[in-house]
């Protein structure tokens, strides 16, 4: 099972990492981070220009149980799961990707 987890984490790309990272930071700050915020941040960082792509990244993380999508006040908010936290920690310790700033979290500071 652990091997499967490692394989899953290995297949994560930078945009997955950023979504996990920004979702964790938002939760730490007591903010709700939804699909639109993630799309805006990915667009701002030049990762994607379409919302469908951003949604596809988020859905992939949801299928892997790395995040949980909750319908709250007509918004789909993103919460990192324990598996997602472990995956993020693994990515950070392996230094696969660099963190980037979230426009949403900067403004909401």
């Amino acid at each position: 099972m652990e091997k499967l987890f490692e394989q899953q984490v290995k297949r994560l790309q930078e945009h997955h990492f950023l979504i996990l990272y920004w979702a964790a930071l938002a939760e730490d700050k007591g903010l709700r981070y939804n699909i639109t915020n993630a799309f805006d941040d990915l667009k701002f960082q030049g990762v994607t220009r379409t919302k469908q792509t951003a949604v596809a990244y988020i859905e992939a993380l949801d299928v892997l149980n790395f995040i949980e999508l909750k319908d709250e006040s007509n918004r789909k908010n993103i919460y990192i799961t324990e598996y997602g936290a472990e995956a993020l920690a693994m990515l950070v310790s392996h230094k696969n990707f660099k963190t980037r700033k979230s426009g949403y979290l900067e403004v909401s500071r």
Partner: peptide
């Protein structure tokens, strides 16, 4: 709030999502 990669651990621990 922690913003650097190395501080991600402390964030995740604070959220009690990292064992």
């Amino acid at each position: 709030a922690a913003t650097e990669g190395n501080d991600v651990f402390s964030v995740l621990k604070r959220l009690r999502k990292l064992k």
